[in-house]
Lab assay of single mutants.
Amino acid sequence: KLATQLLVDLAEGCHTHHFNSLLDIIEKVMARSLSPPPELEERDVAAYSASLEDVKTAVLGLLVILQTKLYTLPASHATRVYEMLVSHIQLHYKHSYTLPIASSIRLQAFDFLLLLRADSLHRLGLPNKDGVVRFSPYCVCDYMEPERGSEKKTSGPLSPPTGPPGPAPAGPAVRLGSVPYSLLFRVLLQCLKQESDWKVLKLVLGRLPESLRYKVLIFTSPCSVDQLCSALCSMLSGPKTLERLRGAPEGFSRTDLHLAVVPVLTALISYHNYLDKTKQREMVYCLEQGLIHRCASQCVVALSICSVEMPDIIIKALPVLVVKLTHISATASMAVPLLEFLSTLARLPHLYRNFAAEQYASVFAISLPYTNPSKFNQYIVCLAHHVIAMWFIRCRLPFRKDFVPFITKGLRSNVLLSFDDTPEKDSFRARSTSLNERPKSLRIARPPKQGLNNSPPVKEFKESSAAEAFRCRSISVSEHVVRSRIQTSLTSASLGSADENSVAQADDSLKN
């Protein structure tokens, strides 16, 4: 292990032709098999893994070397290190390495390699500790012929580059190093199909959405987006994914797998022009299946994007999809995704031109529960009313008269009656009930004795009459309010007539 670390330190600071010789020695160290011998017992696995620490030291050392060589000349050094790393990870899946030390190597290698970024000039870069990406002036992410390196360097940008540029090249004859992302992409596909350690798979799935944002990485080298989509959909639809995973937390289920895969599918929607129609349908189907899991909100957001990006695919699945959405409970976490999906859909009339009455009724059935102001915040309630109004205007004229009683009944049950079921009123009724029952229970537990009763009969009569009056008032709060309003209006009217009579009498006395 110490000798391997010494080789790594020497290679990191070497800029001459001896660098390749040092890498040859490190490569021989990495070539050791990580498969346990067949006769190895389970209690000896930890000791055997400790004997392979030099392999881990070599791989982690290459990660440090690549981070240094990416910004220094010659660029061919970075290319050689990158290829060695990718080849080593491929061996893991070729020979099915399952030892804990092998999983640790893959975890740290993917953690580093999935941080690679590219700008519009195809320059590769890595983020620093502050998250700012520094791009290399010597390494690009696409394949290029050595003699055409300078031509590639002087080509115009596709868009303004992001991030601070690296140091300027030493001279005009500098050759750019090619670090094609397709090599890593193929290893990522192998990981999605064969990885057995949940920690490694979770890391890859968590980092892929951010990497897919940099389309330069994908399009400048032959990366098959179709295969990526197929691998992701197979993970969700195939039963073998959960069987092969180990190291998963207790209670791990298909729902947890959906939570990890759906963000990658959402990021892949922007590549729909490069996906086969069959793959697009598979993607939409997987998102529909996710509606029954805890990732339902993410799936609804993804389907909203699909309705804009892939209208030809979503239009066929939309009638059944809208009916499925009615089975989702009206909760605060689902309110905004569902209502925004319906609001977006209302502005795309070509998608729902074939809707029948059942689909329009489903839209109103989804939106009406969110009009309850005692359960949802003001934004959700306003958005629900907006969706109902928009869809009522957009639905066909023959359907409107049939939906009017349905909508008014839903609004009455969710908006008007919600004020009668407020917690304050319920607590008031509970308190009044307890007050009504309390005197009775006290009389049963403690019967009054005439000799020891010091309270006069008049006081008892007053208290009983007050309790009886309170019971009468607490029967119905709404009736009490109505009666008080009527009494107030009658009182004001009587006072007004009394004032008029007094004024008339005063005038008569003055005349006399």
Rank of each mutant, 00 (worst) to 15 (best):
S49R: 02
A50Q: 10
A50L: 06
S51M: 09
L52H: 08
E53A: 09
E53F: 03
E53T: 05
D54E: 04
D54Y: 05
V55C: 04
V55H: 01
V55W: 01
V55F: 01
K56M: 10
K56Y: 11
K56E: 13
T57K: 04
T57G: 05
T57Q: 10
T57R: 05
A58K: 00
V59A: 12
V59E: 01
V59W: 01
L60P: 01
G61F: 00
G61I: 00
G61H: 01
G61T: 00
L62E: 01
L62A: 07
V64S: 15
I65G: 01
I65W: 01
L66G: 02
L66V: 02
L66I: 05
Q67R: 13
Q67L: 02
Q67W: 02
T68F: 03
T68G: 07
K69V: 01
K69Q: 04
K69T: 02
Y71C: 03
T72H: 14
T72Y: 06
T72P: 01
T72C: 14
L73N: 09
L73D: 08
L73V: 09
L73A: 13
P74K: 02
P74F: 01
P74Y: 03
A75F: 07
A75T: 10
A75G: 08
S76C: 11
S76A: 10
S76L: 07
A78R: 01
A78G: 04
A78N: 01
T79L: 09
R80D: 02
V81W: 01
V81R: 00
Y82M: 05
E83K: 12
M84R: 03
V86T: 10
S87Q: 11
H88C: 01
H88R: 00
I89W: 00
I89Y: 00
I89S: 00
Q90S: 13
Q90P: 02
L91W: 06
L91P: 00
H92E: 01
Y93P: 00
Y93L: 00
K94D: 11
S96F: 10
Y97E: 01
Y97W: 06
Y97N: 01
T98D: 13
T98F: 07
T98M: 08
L99Q: 04
I101V: 10
A102N: 00
A102F: 02
S103L: 04
S103D: 14
S103Y: 03
I105T: 01
R106E: 00
R106S: 00
L115F: 08
L115H: 14
L115A: 14
L116C: 03
L116E: 02
L116F: 07
L116H: 02
R117E: 02
A118I: 03
L121T: 11
H122D: 02
H122E: 02
L124A: 11
L126F: 10
L126A: 07
L126C: 10
P127K: 09
N128W: 09
N128E: 06
K129P: 08
D130S: 08
D130N: 09
D130K: 08
D130G: 06
G131K: 06
V132R: 11
V132L: 09
V133R: 04
V133K: 03
R134T: 07
F135H: 04
F135Y: 11
F135A: 03
F135S: 03
S136K: 01
S136N: 01
P137E: 06
P137Q: 09
P137R: 13
Y138Q: 03
Y138N: 05
Y138K: 02
C139K: 02
C139L: 12
C139V: 12
C139W: 02
C139H: 10
C141Y: 02
C141W: 03
C141S: 07
D142Q: 05
D142M: 03
D142C: 03
D142F: 02
Y143S: 09
Y143E: 10
Y143L: 10
M144E: 10
M144Y: 12
E145H: 08
E145K: 09
E147V: 12
G149S: 13
E151T: 08
E151G: 10
K152V: 14
K152R: 12
K152W: 14
K152S: 08
K153C: 13
K153W: 10
T154D: 12
T154W: 14
T154M: 11
S155E: 11
G156A: 11
P160A: 09
P160E: 10
P161E: 14
P161V: 13
T162A: 14
G163R: 11
P164F: 10
P164D: 14
P164L: 12
P164V: 12
G166N: 11
G166I: 13
G166S: 11
P172L: 10
A173Q: 14
A173L: 11
A173N: 13
L176F: 14
L176K: 14
L176Q: 11
G177I: 04
S178F: 09
V179Y: 02
P180W: 01
P180T: 04
Y181F: 10
Y181K: 02
Y181D: 02
S182W: 04
S182D: 04
L183F: 09
L184P: 03
F185M: 04
V187N: 04
V187I: 13
V187R: 01
L189Y: 03
L189A: 03
Q190S: 12
Q190R: 06
C191R: 00
L192W: 00
L192E: 00
E195M: 00
E195G: 00
E195T: 00
S196L: 06
S196M: 09
D197L: 00
K199P: 13
K199C: 11
K199F: 07
V200E: 01
V200T: 04
L201S: 01
L201M: 06
L201I: 06
K202L: 03
K202S: 09
L203Q: 12
L203R: 07
L203F: 07
V204D: 00
V204G: 00
V204M: 01
L205H: 00
L205Y: 00
L205Q: 00
R207T: 03
R207A: 05
P209Y: 04
P209F: 04
P209R: 07
E210P: 02
S211F: 05
S211Q: 09
L212K: 00
R213I: 04
K215T: 04
K215W: 01
L217W: 04
L217R: 02
L217G: 03
F219R: 08
F219H: 09
T220C: 04
S221G: 03
P222I: 02
P222Q: 08
P222V: 04
C223T: 04
S224A: 09
S224D: 10
D226A: 07
L228M: 08
C229I: 05
C229S: 07
C233E: 02
C233I: 10
M235V: 05
M235R: 03
M235Y: 03
L236D: 01
L236E: 01
S237L: 12
S237Y: 05
G238Q: 12
P239F: 08
P239K: 09
P239R: 10
P239G: 12
P239H: 12
K240C: 12
K240M: 08
K240F: 10
K240P: 04
T241W: 07
L242S: 05
E243N: 08
E243R: 08
R244Y: 04
G247E: 09
A248P: 06
A248D: 04
A248C: 12
A248W: 04
P249V: 04
P249L: 03
E250L: 08
E250I: 09
E250S: 11
G251R: 06
G251C: 05
G251Q: 07
